[in-house]
Write a protein that binds this DNA or RNA. Structure first.
Lengths: 189, 189
DNA sequence: GAGCCTCCATCAAGTGTTTAATTAGCCGGC
DNA sequence: GCCGGCTAATTAAACACTTGATGGAGGCTC
């Protein structure tokens, strides 16, 4: 929080957050035990509480970490003409390459309906994503790479819903990819 | 389990399962406490364990209940020509009308990646849904109400992914509906 | 009264959190 | 140079409470 956090201290924090992140990925919030997090890093349980006063604050760290990870891939890149295509591919690839992130995102999304603090951040992330996506869609239409759409907002919502839905654990990765490719086809990308 | 379970006994079971169901809906698996379930029904904790030897078995009951609830709306109805449309509407309506069910489905879906018993059932449900959907799509194409599709399986997967994704808690119901309507438009329903 | 059902009391194993103490390194003054 | 205090970082050991589960005693109904 404060400006002067020593390098070693910052490292410890990251270690702890990352351990908790992995823990949540494989066991859900239900399976998150502060003791195990500490053990995985190889420190005493009290050390964990030295850096994160409460379990809640540790979860906060994980939330921040996961969101950061996700946000980076949301930033569009490549030539404007195929930014939309790149974007879809990138997000989908990320979710397949890092099932841990997909799992944690799922947990956080679900938790956001009960935890206002989580909700605020997750909501913000989705809002950003939605508006990014809408921008890409509009640009693609103006560009000519995409047939005109009535409601770019609704399309953006659909794309996001489809991506999130296709990363749910029961859908094996192949089916998820198929679904997204099918969406691209329908959209005319 | 056995054939002769008295009416009152069966009622108790249902009460307990339903209480657990509500509990999971509002607090996730993380927040499921057998004591609270028993308290909500108004019985002693030991009574709960009389009907459900373990917490796991209680969750099994909830799983069965939720799946049953979901499955009923999956059955297509109406005239064959607009069964597909009805189906989409029905599922979507269900998820909006019963946010509890959506929440529990989400929890179960996430849990299915860690719990083999849950996975088996949830997977089965999705498989059924997928093939039902594919059947509807094919019939609609043959019917003429839907333009020809290359891969009905992929389309079915997309529809399912979109529906599941649109019921995630952070998407407010209006956006979710928009997304599904947009999907209908794209599909040409 | 037999059998299904319910409760009281209790256990053992965790669970997040805290307390008091220890170590290591740094800095200023003598 | 070195010493005493200061702070950051870490630890062992518990604390207070929760949680799933049990055993045995009694009750209600047919």
């Amino acid at each position: 929080m404060s400006a002067r956090t020593s390098a070693i201290s910052e490292k410890r924090r990251r270690e702890l957050v990352h351990a908790a992140y992995k823990q949540i990925a494989e066991g859900g919030f239900e399976g998150l035990r502060t003791r195990e997090v500490a053990a995985e890093v190889g420190v005493n349980i009290a050390t964990l509480h030295y850096y994160f006063p409460t379990k809640e604050s540790l979860i906060g760290g994980v939330l921040e970490y996961a969101m950061g990870r996700f946000r980076t891939t949301l930033e569009p890149h490549g030539s404007p003409s195929d930014q939309l295509r790149n974007h879809l591919r990138a997000v989908r690839k990320l979710m397949v390459a890092q099932p841990e992130l997909a799992a944690v995102m799922g947990e956080l999304t679900l938790r956001s309906s009960r935890d206002p603090a989580v909700r605020a951040i997750v909501d913000g992330m989705f809002a950003t994503w939605q508006s990014t996506m809408r921008g890409l869609l509009r640009r693609a239409v103006k560009n000519g790479t995409l047939p005109a759409q009535q409601d770019s907002g609704a399309v953006a919502g659909l794309v996001i819903a489809a991506i999130m839905g296709s990363t749910l654990p029961q859908v094996d990765p192949k089916r998820g990819d198929q679904a997204i490719r099918q969406l691209e086809r329908l959209l005319g990308i």
